[in-house]
């Protein structure tokens, strides 16, 4: 049993950090709306991807390219279609796989790039054996990144029923909503993960300072408020504080990060092939520390050594300073 550690790279320097810290594979995306972390200043040019892949391959590390948003309607000139360009660039650069979500992009890849290995992005939200089986049969998808809605028990049952590999998130930012099926961001701001590759985009973020504290607003909606001494959070819509039924609460999700380090052994037993770390928008310091820690976790699990104190080691890097095992434990629901 060997678990593959799949690590984030928002920039070439983060890619090098992940490779040096012990990643088995690194995932990244192009600097445009074709991937779900389309934030300003982030991601790779075609040239940077070529160079990054050369570097990773020299160290025996695979590179997976995320092209996981949904193709825009009404692109008249196929030669100028960013999603088609991205697929061609990824293949040309020698990507070991592409991570896709959209039926149109999958169909194009399967038809025009038969040599590319296809992974199904979490953004495709395929959570049942029937849906996963469909993607495998229709497009030859080899691996599915599991939606963050399944418990470990459900993953074990699922793996019995499907013929493709599964990849499960083990650390990082946590969407409480089913990814790829959330339009909260565009409702407030006009820009969404599916259409633009961004959630709660920074150009709509505003921090208003007042003596009693800071109010974080997204497109004018007060998403959260922080006392002067309290840690501030990035105003991601679903992690905000809201009022419903007369109660003020983090209705959708508390500002916490996923840390499933303690569940790695059970995920392995459930038949998971790869463990994924979230955080392409985070710095290389984060990438290096999280990858090193999970490399140690995986080694401890594989050799039956004492568990690594991952929660303690990573506590300073997580949002809100708090960690959860999310939907992997049924109580989360």
């Amino acid at each position: 049993m060997t678990l593959e550690l799949v690590c984030p790279a928002g920039t070439p320097s983060a890619l090098r950090a992940a490779v040096e810290a012990g990643a088995d594979a690194v995932y990244c995306g192009f600097r445009d709306e074709t991937n779900a972390r389309n934030f300003p200043g982030l991601n790779f040019s075609a040239e940077e991807l070529h160079e990054g892949i050369r570097f990773a391959h020299r160290h025996g590390v695979r590179v997976l390219v995320a092209i996981n948003t949904f193709m825009r309607a009404g692109i008249a000139d196929a030669a100028a279609d960013p999603w088609k360009i991205a697929l061609a660039c990824a293949e040309d650069a020698g990507a070991d796989a592409v991570i896709l979500a959209d039926l149109a992009v999958l169909d194009h890849a399967a038809t025009h790039h038969p040599g590319l290995r296809l992974h199904l992005s979490v953004q495709a939200a395929a959570a049942t054996p029937e849906a996963i089986g469909f993607y495998a049969e229709a497009f030859g998808v080899k691996r599915v990144v599991l939606p963050r809605v399944l418990s470990v028990e459900e993953i074990a049952v699922l793996n019995q029923a499907i013929a493709v590999e599964t990849e499960a998130f083990v650390f990082g930012g946590l969407c409480p909503m089913t990814e790829g099926r959330c339009a909260l961001s565009s409702y407030a701001t006009g820009r969404s993960p599916n259409l633009d590759g961004v959630c709660s985009p920074p150009e709509h973020v505003d921090y208003a300072q007042a003596p009693e504290g800071t109010t974080a607003r997204l497109a004018g909606f007060a998403i959260d408020r922080f006392a002067p001494t309290q840690l501030a959070g990035y105003p991601t819509l679903c992690k905000g504080s809201f009022v419903a039924g007369g109660k003020t609460s983090h209705l959708f999700e508390d500002p916490v990060s996923l840390n499933a380090a303690g569940l790695v052994a059970r995920l392995a037993k459930a038949g998971v092939t790869a463990l994924k770390i979230e955080g392409r928008q985070r710095g290389k310091g984060y990438v290096a520390e999280v990858v090193r820690t999970f490399r140690a976790v995986v080694e401890a699990v594989e050799t039956g050594r004492d568990p690594v104190e991952a929660e303690r080691r990573l506590s300073s890097l997580v949002e809100g300073g708090r960690q959860t095992s999310g939907a992997y434990r049924k109580q989360w629901r």
Partner: peptide, 15 residues
């Protein structure tokens, strides 16, 4: 402009 600052921080981060 939080987006401009984010771009600057990502550019510096990579540099």
């Amino acid at each position: 402009r939080t987006d401009a600052l984010l771009a600057l921080r990502n550019a510096i981060e990579d540099a």
